[in-house]
Amino acid sequence: MDFLTFVQLLDSTVRLATPLLLACLAGLFSERAGIFDIGLEGKMLAAAFFSAAIAALSGSVWLGLLAGIASSMVFSLLHGVASITFRGNQLISGVAINFLAAGLTVLIAQDWFSQGGRTPSLMGGARFEPITLPFAESLGAIPIFGPIYRELISGHSILVYVAFAMVPLTWWILFRTRFGLRLRAVGENPAAVDTAGVSVVGLRYAAVIICGVLCGLAGAYLSTALQAGFVKDMSAGRGFIALAALIFAKWRPWYALYATLLFGLFGALETRPDVIEALFGIRVQGALLGALPYVMTVIILAGFVGKAIPPRAGGEPYVKER
């Protein structure tokens, strides 16, 4: 395997890791505040559809992005109403949201576009185009650094850079601001936060809304940057892989980056069986490689390799008086 193939492999790793990273950080905010969210998948799917649909209708990808974020936030709020206001089961609410998104997207797509549950292909301004960073061509001639800069760092859509910038930002919000401290506290011991006179409900709604925004970005990336248009069930389990990455990362932002890059690499390798064969001399089934994130997550969950401990109040509705 030559150097350029290697860089290209890393390049597609970055592309595939981006939606996982955004969804993973979305789950991070929600779960750190004590709201389990297995509805990441559904929110991503809804956002993917609405951003592609609005982009196709208006011709502007930015309007599409806004629509995607808005739709994902609506689902987030639904999750919030069910699990914060009505103290329902957060897991069941997440399952419902996944199905609601899976059904509604196809239903509306069929009604609007009559193309068997897909949107028309996006072209021109209706898509996020790759951004060429300055000097990408002129520096490309430098050995080692040149190809890395030109192929790997430059030439992604704006959302990829946003996703990577979200990692330090999330870390800063969670660990260096008052809001972050309170958000983490509400996921560990909501009663203490309540005693301090801070609204548990308010904090949890804030977390859920941030989760919606990030899932919206992830979904919009899927349909307007990674691919050109929405197809039925296009999130294809990515929300669950993000969930797995979240556990793998033990609910920490920087680890989330590493976990999603690792799972992105598996995804990239899945499409390049020739690379694996060249590296290890064995043919690995794509399907089995695709299952690797799930297997690794189960092993981590089992606590054989460093135990993953979730936020303590996760999944439990907060009741002020008993």
Binding site: L78, V81, A82, S83, F86, G88, N89, Q90, I92, S93, V95, A96, I97, N98, F99, L100, A102, G103
Partner: peptide, 10 residues
Amino acid sequence: ALVILFTGAL
């Protein structure tokens, strides 16, 4: 989804 939502979560 609506049945799950209303009978389960809500």
